[in-house]
Design a protein around this nucleic acid. Structure first.
Length: 557
RNA sequence: UGGGGCGUAGCUCAAUUGGCAGAGCGACGGACUCUGACUCCGUAGGUUGUAGGUUCGAUCCCUACCGCCCCAGCCA
């Protein structure tokens, strides 16, 4: 049942299997319930893949529901961005809902709670409530307003809605148990008063807003959710979730199941911190390619497929851990290796003159777009007397392990000829400014006989290539767990997380690349045409991820 | 300190519910290669947090410890 997509099973899917087998449910209904107070991040993707993935694999459905009970923090911009991100990830909701759709029903249920003596209007202010609540080790004391008559509570609550009382002056509270060892059960607030806010869905219609703990179970039940999946910090809230549904007249009682949230090395995931990065302009916005947001990963060049397979790879459990960044990187490498056309780009150009190649000639050489997939076809690269190679691909001398160009040595120019380096020309400071090489005309398409070249390097024609900007992104933070030990996480920002290279040379086939197109720059990594800053005929490239590099780990000789 | 959770390989997860502790990723080594990529082959890596107990037999059941996370918003 759960294996249809090849998605690995987990304890939640096992519970669902059991519920289907026992006949408790014939159909599964999940929901993804974001609060529109920020952009979605990779941690939300885990929840999205879980919830929508279950709906896909079982006979089931999944709603997108905005948990919009706190208009002070929520905005329409965020609801639109979230819808975009969910769709981009490849999912479509069965129903689009807002918790605010249920405000009227929520209000009616609150009246029911009051009528049955399960809720009361409390006149304590926030500080007094805190004093009465007790501590982790001491029980709380009942509010002096706890035993008001039902009639008075009804009247007061109706007047709360009518706007008769100022912010913070009163709350509606559940009447549960002030001595409960679970603080969430110590007569939690159900409604608070908030004047003067324009809610993005309901406008100025309400001046009282329901709390999450009250809204969520009822919203779930109203939608016929069977399994309400949330993160571990809500485990303590489950008794309250159940209490609400057990004490009102409602037919459905979803099962809340908690799983551990995603933690990723070298980044931060809390909305508070992401918001701070954006507001204080440590990044260019929610979609900065270094951000772990879906919008950031999208602009960075990640694919929905890669993010989905990443989410499946990390699994779903109740134990907390931190996933290595390499797992995310491998997910995109794996996908793009299969589908990204290959191109040649020189990031740090060093001019090479092929002395024995005629000045007035050029050759259009066919180059495969993919080494293992001929269906991806070929394009032409232009070979000329002057080409660029990368500075890192030449050394005056090196040991045998160095598989690139050395003085007096031979190397193949990818898709073209074998060349030998005869001379390195230096400027007054001793810096190499040009290489003089000779090429072997008999090495096109086959290797020379009787001798072995050191390796293969990429190149671009100096006369046919085009300058382009390439942005090299690295992890946003320099430590695996930013801000650990209580210090400011901003101190851990990686100062080199973005390097802009403006003098790169790209092969002709790349000048017409359009926004969002992804390529492998051979021997370098995977790159995407930036959707924001590229211009027609002048693409800007973002590095998505470098190629795996076993050479970089070997100590320099 | 009260309550709620979680501890299995470097990381993420399995282990048919008491029957020889495995996989993927990573690391390391090799093969292949016109990408130091991809692919393929192989190796290492464990006192299952600790100490007891029950049992022929414990990752699994019991007891006690230890460590880590969450909870004292009129946030979600």
């Amino acid at each position: 049942m759960s294996g249809d997509s090849g998605a690995p099973t987990n304890f939640i899917r096992q519970i669902i299997d059991d519920d289907l087998a026992s006949g408790k449910h014939a159909r599964i209904h999940t929901r993804f319930p974001p609060e529109p107070n920020g952009y979605l991040h990779i941690g939300h993707a885990k929840s999205i893949v879980l919830n929508f993935g279950i709906a896909q694999d079982y006979p089931g459905s999944c709603n997108l529901r905005f948990d919009d009970t706190n208009p002070a923090k929520e905005e329409e911009e965020f609801v639109e961005a979230i819808k975009d991100d969910v769709r981009w990830l490849g999912y479509d909701w069965d129903a689009l809902r807002f918790a605010s759709d249920y405000f009227e029903q929520l209000y009616e249920y609150a009246l029911e709670l009051i009528r049955s003596g399960k809720a009361f209007v409390c006149d304590l202010d926030a500080e007094q409530v805190r004093e009465y609540r007790g501590t982790l080790t001491e029980p709380g004391r009942p509010s002096p307003y706890r035993d008001r008559s039902i009639e008075e509570n009804l009247d007061l609550f109706q007047r709360m809605r009518a706007g008769d009382f100022p912010d913070g002056s009163r709350t509606l509270r559940a009447k549960i148990d002030m001595a409960s060892p679970n603080i969430n059960m110590r007569d939690p607030a159900l409604y608070r008063i908030r004047h003067g806010l324009i809610h993005h869905q309901t406008g100025a219609e309400w001046c009282i807003y329901p709390m999450y703990d009250y809204t969520h179970p009822i919203s779930d039940a109203l939608e016929g959710i069977t399994h309400s999946l949330c993160t571990l910090e809500f485990e303590d809230h489950r008794p309250l979730y159940d209490w609400v549904l057990d004490n009102i007249t409602i037919a459905c009682h979803p099962r809340q199941i908690e799983f551990s949230r995603l933690n990723l090395e070298y980044t931060v995931m809390s909305k508070r911190r992401l918001t701070q990065l954006v507001q204080e302009k440590h990044v260019s916005g929610w979609n900065d390619p270094r951000m772990p947001t879906i919008a950031g990963l999208r602009r960075r060049g990640y694919t929905p497929e890669a993010i989905r397979s990443f989410c499946e790879a990390v699994g779903v459990t109740k134990s907390e851990g931190t996933v290595e960044m390499g797992v995310l990187e491998n997910s995109i490498r794996g996908h793009l290796d299969a589908v990204a056309p290959r191109r040649m780009v020189v990031l740090d150009p060093l001019k090479v003159t092929i002395s024995n190649y005629p000045d007035d000639t050029s050759e259009a050489l066919p180059a495969g777009n993919h080494p293992k997939d001929e269906s991806m076809g070929t394009r032409e690269v232009v070979f000329t007397r002057e080409v660029y190679i990368d500075r890192a691909d030449f050394r005056e001398e090196a040991n045998k392990k160095y598989k690139r160009l050395v003085l007096g040595g031979e190397v193949r120019l990818r898709n073209a000829y074998v060349v030998r380096c005869d001379e390195a020309i230096k400027d007054a400071d001793g810096e190499i400014v040009e290489l003089r090489c000779t090429y072997d005309p008999d090495t096109l398409g086959h290797n020379p006989e009787g001798r072995k070249v050191r390796g293969v390097i990429h190149w671009v024609s100096a006369t046919h290539g085009q300058r382009a900007e390439v942005r090299l992104y690295d992890r946003l933070f320099s430590t695996a767990n930013p801000g650990r030990g209580g210090q400011d996480f901003l101190d851990d920002i990686n100062a080199d997380s973005l390097r802009v290279l403006s003098e790169c040379v790209v092969e002709p086939a790349l000048t017409s690349a359009t926004a969002g197109e992804r390529f492998q720059f051979e021997r370098e990594g995977y790159f995407v045409v930036d959707a924001v800053d590229s211009r027609a005929g002048a693409p800007v490239f973002n590095r998505i991820v470098s190629l795996r590099d076993s050479w970089g780990k070997i100590a320099e000789d």
